[in-house]
């Protein structure tokens, strides 16, 4: 674990971040916090700017306007080393299909500076927690989508991170697998005190006590617990609250 900030401090802080692609604004003055031991859902329709924000948090892009701090370390100042306490699950599959599960995880473990012996111990432990222990020697190509996702989640936890960010991690999975993965990640926040940022456009993945950040057209339109967001919008369900907070373009046109 990288202990660089007191436990009371947010694990992930995004402050006044704006970003544009060739003049087209993708994010506009975005600020929010992800607390330790909390599941924070970043909810937004397609095109809201979630993946752009995810790319800034994982330093695939540099945030030129605003700042991002991971466990107190400013990404712009500390550079790549600030990513040490971060675990990441990308939207796109990122496993090597021709390598085995263990070979894939060992590769990641080495990138994080773990010895082979330590890596193997952690690999066995993480895979056992995800009911994947018996698949360790199989090539990733032979696994189904749900199992590949589990391997990616195991990989994100291998170096004992303090913050885990997941970008639409359940896209393309069947409902039972989706539920199992969402439930497992919720459990991780409770049992390990992890800070989780879960980007999604699927409302049923969010529990009423979860922290919620609603992103729409690059701007934050609501924050708070899911329950408080529903109350603030004067609706009774998160579906209705989301519809009210993120009106579609044609709906806005009709209202005019």
């Amino acid at each position: 674990m990288t202990a660089s900030a007191p436990d009371s401090a947010p694990a992930l802080e995004v402050d006044h971040v704006s970003f544009a692609y060739a003049g087209r604004k993708a994010l506009d003055d975005v600020s929010f916090r992800v607390r330790r031991g909390r599941f924070t859902a970043l909810l937004g329709p397609n095109g809201a700017g979630k993946t752009t924000l995810f790319s800034l948090i994982t330093r695939l892009f540099d945030a030129r306007i605003g700042s991002i701090r991971i466990c107190g370390q400013d990404l712009a100042r500390a550079g790549a080393s600030a990513l040490a306490p971060l675990g990441v699950v990308f939207q796109q599959p990122t496993l090597d299909l021709d390598l085995s599960v263990r070979q894939n995880l060992r590769y990641f473990a080495r990138l994080r500076g773990l010895s082979v012996k330590d890596a193997d111990r952690r690999i066995d432990d993480q895979l056992a927690r995800l009911d994947m222990a018996e698949r360790v020697g199989e090539k990733v190509r032979s696994l189904n989508g749900g199992h590949r996702r589990r391997v990616e989640i195991a990989r994100a936890l291998l170096h004992d991170p303090e913050v885990v960010v997941l970008d639409e991690a359940t896209v393309g999975l069947d409902v039972p697998t989706r539920k199992a993965i969402v439930s497992h990640v919720h459990e991780l926040t409770r049992s390990r005190g992890l800070a989780v940022l879960w980007t999604t456009h699927l409302i049923d993945e969010i529990e009423t006590d979860d922290d919620l950040v609603v992103l729409h057209r690059g701007r934050i339109v609501a924050t708070g617990t899911a329950r408080s967001v529903v109350e603030a919008t004067g609706t009774t369900t998160l579906d209705a609250a989301f519809a009210r907070l993120t009106p579609r373009a044609e709906t806005v046109e009709e209202a005019r």
Partner: peptide
Amino acid sequence: EMGSMRVLLTSPLPR
């Protein structure tokens, strides 16, 4: 494009 490069580029080591 497919994603596996991201695993490399998001490790805490200089680019």
